[in-house]
Simulated assay, not measured.
Amino acid sequence: MNAMTDMHLYRHLDEMAPWNDRLQVLEVIGVTDETPDVKTFTFRSDAQTWFRYKPGQFVTLELPTADGPLMRTYTLSSSPSRPFSIAVTVKAQPGSVGTRWMFDNLRAGVRIKALGPAGDFTHHNHPAPKYLFISAGSGITPMMSMLRWLNDCAPWTDVSFVNCARRPEEIIFRKELELLGTQMPGLTLGFLIEERSSSRESWFGHMGRIDAVRLPLLSPDFKEREVFCCGPDPFMRAVRGMLEAAGFNMRFYHQESFGAPPAETLPAPADGPGMEVAVEARLPIRFADSEVDGECLAGQTVLQAARASGVRISAACEFGLCGTCRVRKISGAVDMNHNGGILDDEIAEGYILACCSKPLSALEIEA
Score class of each variant (00 low, 15 high):
Leu9Glu: 12
Pro69Lys: 11
Leu76Ile: 05
Arg200Asp: 15
Gly323Glu: 06
Ala288Glu: 09
Gly299Leu: 11
Ala367Cys: 11
Asp345Lys: 04
Ala154Gly: 05
Thr32Met: 11
Ile29Lys: 13
Phe191Met: 13
Leu343Ala: 14
Pro284Asn: 00
Pro18Phe: 03
Gly137Arg: 10
Ala108Ile: 07
Pro273Met: 05
Arg251Asn: 12
Ile210Thr: 00
Phe103Gly: 08
Ser160Leu: 07
Val279Trp: 04
Met250Trp: 12
Ser81Met: 01
Gly95Arg: 13
Val159Asp: 01
Phe258His: 06
Thr157Leu: 08
Pro129Leu: 00
Ser160Asp: 10
Lys54Tyr: 08
Ala308Asn: 08
Ala3Met: 05
Phe84Asn: 13
Ala316Val: 00
Asp67Cys: 05
Lys39Ala: 00
Arg307Ile: 05
Phe43His: 05
Arg214Leu: 15
Pro267Ala: 15
Thr122Pro: 04
Ala238Cys: 06
Ala154Cys: 08
Pro359Glu: 01
Leu321His: 12
Ala278Pro: 03
Asp345Trp: 10
Leu70Glu: 07
Phe248Ala: 11
Ala154Arg: 14
Met143Ala: 14
Ala108Leu: 02
Arg328Tyr: 09
His12Lys: 15
Leu23His: 14
Thr122Tyr: 08
Gly272Trp: 03
Glu366Ile: 09
Ala118Ser: 12
Glu62Gln: 14
Arg166Lys: 09
Met144His: 11
Leu76Asp: 12
